[in-house]
């Protein structure tokens, strides 16, 4: 558990960070909170020659409203997500999710940007971002571009980011006031990745679902947006039969690995159980 040798860089601006990543090449890695990268380095699964630490980049901090969206700086910590009045009021699923990530010590350092950008299927925020239809602001040597969360994840630790590009902010369309939401996570202990987890955001009117979006964590090589299941539920009263059908549709898109959390079949079933429970809580919160 001793990492290999590396050089450490601490830029103070996005431009400087991107410049360093560009000039140092493939052996350089950006580091945010480090809670995924440092363990991988200690296990020598990753051996970057250069670490470009983003902690000193002030522009990457902060949470603010921008028209109909909310912008969260990539270096915002999970603790700051939980502590944010704006997020608690407007997108409460974020703080609900963040409290299920690791423990307070990790949340003081771990960042939301690192969580979404690393491409680890075990991370919780990516499925939530897909559920919320978030967009990531990415900056590289050719400037800034925006990538939809739903198109960002391509494989385990494999994302739409180009070499040298970093996620600078997360843009989330503010959900309608009074929406229902829930993040349900089954884990073995504090600090564990999900055996399976489900994020639900929905709106309702007159006892019917007017919109519904579902994300699933750690039940495939990438986080999943359960589009078909979401569609099945839209327009329904979340009656048992429709929920069962939607759960089956969600389970159908999973392909979890068998690991010490359980065999694949069990983890798929747990995705269904988590979704059923998340729907139940989201329904209650949406007031029907």
């Amino acid at each position: 558990m001793i990492p290999g040798s590396f050089a450490y860089h601490r830029p103070s601006s996005v431009k400087e960070a991107v410049g360093l990543l560009g000039s140092l090449g493939d052996d350089a890695r950006a580091i945010a909170g480090g809670h995924s990268l440092i363990p991988m380095m200690k296990l020598r699964l990753a051996s970057p020659s250069h670490l470009v630490d983003l902690v000193g980049v002030a522009d990457l901090k902060g949470i603010r409203e921008d028209g109909k969206d909310i912008l969260i700086g990539a270096m915002t910590t999970q603790h700051e997500v939980i502590a944010s009045d704006l997020l608690t009021k407007k997108i409460p699923i974020l703080s609900e999710t963040a409290t299920l990530i690791a423990d307070p010590q990790v949340r003081y350092v771990g960042t939301i940007g690192g969580n979404v950008a690393n491409g680890d299927p075990g991370n919780d925020m990516p499925a939530v971002m897909m559920c919320l239809n978030a967009t990531y602001h990415a900056v590289g040597k050719s400037g800034e571009r925006r990538i939809a969360a739903r198109e960002f994840y391509q494989g385990a630790y494999f994302t739409a980011l180009e070499p040298g590009e970093i996620v600078t902010a997360i843009r989330i369309p503010t959900p309608a006031a009074g929406h229902g939401y829930a993040y349900e996570k089954l884990k073995r202990k504090v600090g564990d990745y999900a055996t399976a987890a489900a994020a639900v955001v929905l709106t309702a009117s007159g006892g019917k679902v007017t919109s519904c979006s579902i994300g699933l964590t750690n039940v495939a090589e990438t986080p999943l947006w359960a589009e078909e299941a979401s569609k099945i539920l839209t327009g329904s009263a979340l009656d048992a039969a429709t929920v069962k059908k939607a759960v089956a549709a969600a389970e159908a898109i999973t392909s979890p690995a068998s690991d010490s959390r359980g065999p694949a079949a069990y983890r798929t079933k747990m995705a269904g159980v988590m979704l059923t429970r998340a729907l139940g809580r989201a329904k209650a919160r949406a007031g029907f």
């Binding site: 089954l186 073995r188 055996t195 959390r261 359980g262 069990y266 079933k269």
Partner: peptide, 8 residues
């Protein structure tokens, strides 16, 4: 008696 064994 972890989750999946008990579930099984």
């Amino acid at each position: 008696h972890d989750n999946w064994r008990t579930w099984t």
